[in-house]
Design a protein around this nucleic acid. Structure first.
Length: 770
RNA sequence: UGGGGGAUCGUCUAAUGGCAGGACGCCAGACUCUGGAUCUGGCUAUCUAGGUUCGAAUCCUAGUCCCCCAGCCA
């Protein structure tokens, strides 16, 4: 175990339980298995952080594995980009970078073994025939005419496939499972297809390539992966994953697949196909365009790995289909940059200001701390003269209510410098404001001056500032759910990039190196672009704005259109079967079986409700079980209740007839409860034990010490003990938090193993607590 | 019933029969040389209906809604 923080999610719970149970010999091995056919995006970041984080937290290892089983879409360029991204995020795979293509020979051997064992065959149907033969959701498939080929013939054919004697599409290797399997993935899935294509690593060595469902479980098994974590859409594939492993084992460890919900984010798209389209259609400048949700794009925008990790922690891991508010990402980015970006002065859209009472020609070098309020973290010189520039947006001729910036006659603080007062707005020929004439207060410099003004604005010196290109990035999409639009391209935000050509930055920023990060005071966090910046001429990318409670007024949110229903392609000829419910099946069973029908009536005659009678007579086994219980002296009403409410849940999918607890013994159990020998609470414990291990109810009741305690003194002792153990709760209860009675009652019940009479305990508790 | 999964504040996520918690967001206030940050307080939730239980988000029954699967993609 390491001391890395333990993630708190359902997968961590599984790993922890496995470790506790001693499974896999204490090993924890995960893997991150990208296909090298595109750049990684923030959804992958979630998966990377999960896989690497989980293994690290539990003292395990994580492999990086390229799932390169489809030569026509995969490229070496992506392999390199992916490694860079994973490494940047902090994923440490040591020397364990693997390729599915490294296992092609072993996989092929597995394929031959399946053939030899009669579990796979070569199918020579066309693609269309195979699709047709698979059936549909409601209609079973039909066997391929080639399904019955002999082992020898299959082996010879498979070898010819490998040898390149067959053209693309002429044959495939299929598992021989069940063409009428309810899970369509199990209807003789394809294992290998012929592809005469050059592979980015194996070149022309192979012309047959394994399918994902065959390759992936084997890759995991070859590498000793214990927990194979993927996204929800692979849930149906798990059955096949298990089939492949069980057919080709034994394995140690035997990998298991678990699924979690992939990330969906508002105001963005996270499908490789769509991201590729944006790149190919030049809607963005490339995979690393700062507007892209790719890891490379976010990195270039100025986001840090720490911010992404904070984001991942913020959103957690679960199985709910969810769309995460983009605000959470922005929060994580701001929170990270807040502590690492020094504050600098830059004016994006300048408005000239003349300080009319400034001594002509004089320049003052102000010493301004990089971190306001934390002078110990350093400072730089900022020139101040009679000719300045302020942000155009920071002046209003007719200021609205609550305005805390410049306006005729108003005073503001220039950050790090003097308080100025606007004396006059200079108008151009069209009446527009082209410059400001202000006066300054020579006594207002520094904290000690104690001048109170309504606001502070940023500025730069007009002559001694540097021109800079500033790229103002905004969300790539204008609507929260681009996928819901008719075409996601329609949802693109036309203002996702604005280039401020006339921006000016303070002199200290002129030589900022690529990758430098600053907060431009009051405007946001900026990052010196690592690609386009030149020595002495950095290009600034806006990573993220500051939170702006002033501007956030009255920005109407566009209505979110309803997601358009996806079209179903249903092969012709399928009949729309009427939907049947469980209740319908029970009714059918009774219609077909007069004996069940008779029991349905007789149960009601013996006092059961129609619902109970219905549930008990859906099949003969359940009714038989119930009858056996009643024959063993259980009252019908309570037998029904215990069977339906508790036994059904404990039994799970197991038929009642196969339980270690026969119907007659169940009946004796119910009789014990009816006789008041144990409380309902203790009875549940006893029933769970009987279902798990069998045994005679009476004997187990004694062995587990579950006999009802109605001895006042014993209960009183338990109450005293429980109260003494929870003084805080007692105090809070007495202070008025009456809901804590349940907690205290629970504590007493646990004291007695559930054997105490709950009503009696409640009574004593309320008396004692007053 | 084709099969598989999922429904908890506006959003994301906890609570394995015993106090519905946290975070984002939002609102209000304090503070502030950033309308930022920070601090304080507040807001809002168990899909529906029955049942079991002293006690149900959790167990049972019925229903509703959402997602995934019929590529020689992964």
């Amino acid at each position: 175990m390491s001391d890395a923080p333990k993630p708190q999610n359902f997968l961590a719970a599984i790993v922890e339980a496995d470790l506790r149970a001693g499974r896999n010999g204490g090993r924890v091995v995960t893997r991150f298995p990208p296909e090298p056919n595109g750049f990684l995006h923030i959804g992958h970041a979630k998966s990377i952080l999960l896989n690497f984080g989980l293994a690290k937290a539990f003292g395990g290892r994580t492999n990086l594995r390229f799932d390169d089983t489809n030569p026509v879409t995969e490229e070496t360029e992506y392999v390199e980009a992916i490694q860079q991204d994973v490494r940047w995020l902090g994923g440490d795979w040591g020397d364990r970078v693997h390729y599915a293509s490294d296992y092609f020979e072993r996989m092929y051997e597995c394929a031959e073994r399946l053939v030899r064992e009669g579990k796979a065959y070569v199918d020579s149907q066309t693609q269309e025939q195979i699709r047709e033969g698979r059936g549909s959701f409601e209609r079973p498939g039909v066997d391929s005419p080639y399904r019955g080929r002999s082992v020898e013939e299959n082996l010879a054919l498979l070898r010819r496939m490998r040898a390149g004697e067959l053209p693309d599409g002429a044959a495939v290797l299929r598992a021989k499972i069940d063409m009428s399997h309810p899970n369509v993935l199990m209807r003789d899935p394809l294992l290998y297809r012929i592809r005469h294509a050059k592979h980015h690593r194996t070149g022309d060595r192979w012309c047959i390539y394994p399918m994902y469902d065959f390759a992936h479980p084997l890759e995991d098994a070859f590498e000793g992966v214990t927990h194979s974590i993927c996204t929800l859409e692979f849930e149906s594939n798990r059955e096949l994953y298990d089939w492949v492993l069980d057919s080709l084992g034994p394995w140690d460890p035997r990998p298991h697949q678990y699924e979690f919900a992939r990330l969906a984010l508002g105001y963005t798209v996270l499908s490789k196909r769509k991201l590729l389209q944006l790149v190919q259609e030049r809607r963005v400048s490339g995979w690393d365009d700062p507007r892209m949700p790719t890891i490379a794009g976010m990195r270039r925008r100025g986001v840090t790995p720490e911010a992404l990790r904070a984001f991942a922690e913020l959103i957690g891991v679960a199985k709910n289909n969810s769309v995460v508010d983009i605000g959470k990402l922005e929060f994580a980015i701001r929170g990270d940059l807040e502590g690492r970006a020094p504050r600098a002065l830059a004016v994006l859209a300048p408005l000239p200001v003349t300080i009319v009472n400034w001594p002509a020609g004089e320049v003052e070098e102000l010493d301004v701390p990089w971190w306001p309020g934390e002078p110990a973290r350093g400072s730089r010189k900022v020139p101040f003269s009679g000719e300045l520039l302020v942000e155009r947006e920071d002046f209003a001729l007719e200021p609205p209510k609550g305005w805390r910036r410049l306006a005729p006659g108003r005073e503001v603080r220039l950050a790090g410098a003097y308080v100025v007062r606007c004396e006059e707005a200079v108008r151009g020929p069209g009446g527009e404001v082209v410059a400001l004439r202000c006066t300054y207060d020579p006594a207002s410099l520094g904290e000690a001056a104690g001048r109170k003004v309504s606001g502070t604005i940023h500025w730069v010196d007009a002559r001694r500032s540097a021109p800079a290109e500033v790229r103002i990035y905004d969300r790539l999409f204008a609507v929260e759910q681009p996928d819901a639009a008719p075409s996601f391209l329609d949802a693109l935000n036309p203002d996702s990039l604005r280039i401020e050509q006339g921006a000016r930055v303070e002199p200290a920023l002129r030589d900022a190196p690529p990758g430098a990060r600053y907060q431009f005071l009051r405007q946001g966090y900026f990052f010196a672009d690592p690609v386009d910046s030149r020595p002495g001429a950095p290009v600034w990318n806006r990573t993220i704005t500051l939170k702006d409670t002033w501007a956030s007024r009255a920005a109407p949110q566009p209505a979110v259109e309803a997601r358009k229903p996806r079209e179903r392609k249903e092969p012709a000829g399928a009949t729309a079967a009427p939907r049947k419910t469980r209740a319908g099946f029970r009714a059918d069973a009774r219609a077909a079986d007069p004996a069940l029908r008779a029991r349905y009536a007789s149960y009601q005659a013996r006092g059961l409700s129609a619902e109970e009678a219905d549930l008990l007579t859906g099949d003969a086994a359940t009714a038989d079980y119930f009858d056996a219980a009643v024959a063993a002296k259980a009252a019908p009403a309570s037998a029904a209740r215990w069977l339906l409410n508790d036994l059904a849940g404990l039994a799970g999918d197991h038929p009642l007839g196969e339980l270690p607890l026969p119907g007659a013994a169940f009946g004796r159990f119910v009789a014990l409860v009816d006789a008041g020998r144990l409380t309902p609470s203790a009875a549940k414990t006893l029933l769970a034990d009987l279902v798990a291990h069998g045994g005679e109810p009476e004997a187990r009741l004694g062995a587990l010490g579950l006999a009802k305690v109605d001895d006042r003194a014993a209960i009183e002792a338990a109450v005293e003990k429980a109260l003494a153990a929870q003084p805080r709760e007692v105090e809070r209860y007495r202070a008025g938090e009456k809901k804590l009675l349940g907690v205290l009652l629970g504590a007493v019940m646990r004291q007695t193993g559930g054997a105490a009479d709950a009503a009696l305990v409640r009574k004593m508790l309320t008396e004692k607590l007053g």
